[in-house]
């Protein structure tokens, strides 16, 4: 064993589910980003004549949707948006929430009160409402969706991290650092956040999963990134419209991919949490 990084890698590799998660994610990324290079399809011009073809018909392995787009190609394209937005927005939300929550919890008193009332107020306003407002103001694009989803979903991690911070700030090692003359920045950056890293990482994975679904909601309301762009959530919700027609291939594949993504991130989060826990010796 040499260095903490090597040790972390070792612990991570020992977690079979985490390795499975990484593999799944790798395959998903490969599918979405490298797939279109091999499997060429028309994803801009609609072809209503080919609307809702069953899998296998006319050289469409997974059939086509209501506008005649090839579903397999569309899954690849949609995955790019879903993965990018999910990952970026999830990380952004957790970062904001972590900082906000730890500072509030560590500071305590009126600072905490004010910061947490802001969080309460934010939670009282439905995220969807904010998304709708944002979409009405500006044309939705990938960066904008990342920003908006990130800015509406940091509230829950903020609450979680505040609780962690309150528990950790009274630990003797934080107090002993204060006695040594250390300040709040070091307390938060060097002691509190590293010791709450398990919570942070598990949170990121949830946030990513949530962000993928949020993109789906906005698309469902017609406020997502305008067509011909696609995303899995949007495909799923559109597919649901044709459920009574028996068009199962419009629902099952995107649904499955969303579940796979969420699971993959959760498994990875689990493995990362163990890897960052210095006490972890393998169970």
């Amino acid at each position: 064993m040499s260095g903490p990084t090597a040790r972390r890698l070792k612990v991570f590799r020992r977690n079979k589910l985490a390795v499975a998660g990484i593999t799944m994610l790798g395959l998903l990324v490969l599918f979405c980003f490298a797939g279109p290079l091999v499997y060429h399809t028309e994803q801009v011009l609609t072809s209503l004549a080919d609307s809702k073809l069953e899998p296998g018909v006319n050289g469409h392995p997974l059939g086509t949707d209501d506008l005649g787009y090839d579903l397999l190609g569309r899954l690849m394209l949609g995955g790019q948006t879903s993965l990018v937005i999910g990952l970026a927005a999830g990380v952004l939300a957790t970062m904001i929430g972590t900082l906000w929550g730890t500072i509030a919890g560590y500071a305590g008193g009126w600072v905490d009160a004010v910061m947490m009332r802001i969080v309460d107020a934010g939670i009282a306003i439905p995220a969807l409402f904010l998304l709708v407002v944002a979409a009405a103001i500006a044309t939705p694009s990938v960066p904008m969706l990342i920003l908006v989803i990130g800015l509406v979903s940091w509230l829950v991690p903020a609450r979680l991290m505040r609780a962690e911070s309150i528990a950790l700030r009274s630990r003797a090692y934080v107090e002993s650092m204060k006695v040594m003359g250390g300040g709040s920045v070091r307390a938060i950056g060097k002691h509190i956040i590293p010791n709450a890293i398990g919570t942070v990482i598990v949170n990121v994975t949830f946030q990513i999963a949530d962000a993928v679904l949020l993109v789906a909601y906005v698309s469902f309301l017609g406020l997502g990134i305008p067509p011909p762009a696609a995303n899995w959530g949007g495909m799923l919700s559109e597919g649901l419209t044709y459920a009574h027609d028996g068009a199962w291939w419009l629902i099952l594949p995107p649904g499955l991919l969303i579940v796979m993504t969420v699971c993959a991130f959760n498994f990875i989060g689990d493995g990362l949490r163990d890897a960052f826990d210095v006490r972890f010796e393998g169970r």
Partner: peptide, 25 residues
């Protein structure tokens, strides 16, 4: 807080529970 800093260099503290007074990470 700043004025206190030079003094903190001249004091040391040992706590009861050595398990919690050292950062586990």
């Amino acid at each position: 807080t700043r004025g206190m800093r030079p003094l903190t260099a001249r004091i040391g503290m040992i706590f009861q529970d050595p398990a919690s007074s050292l950062d586990p990470r």
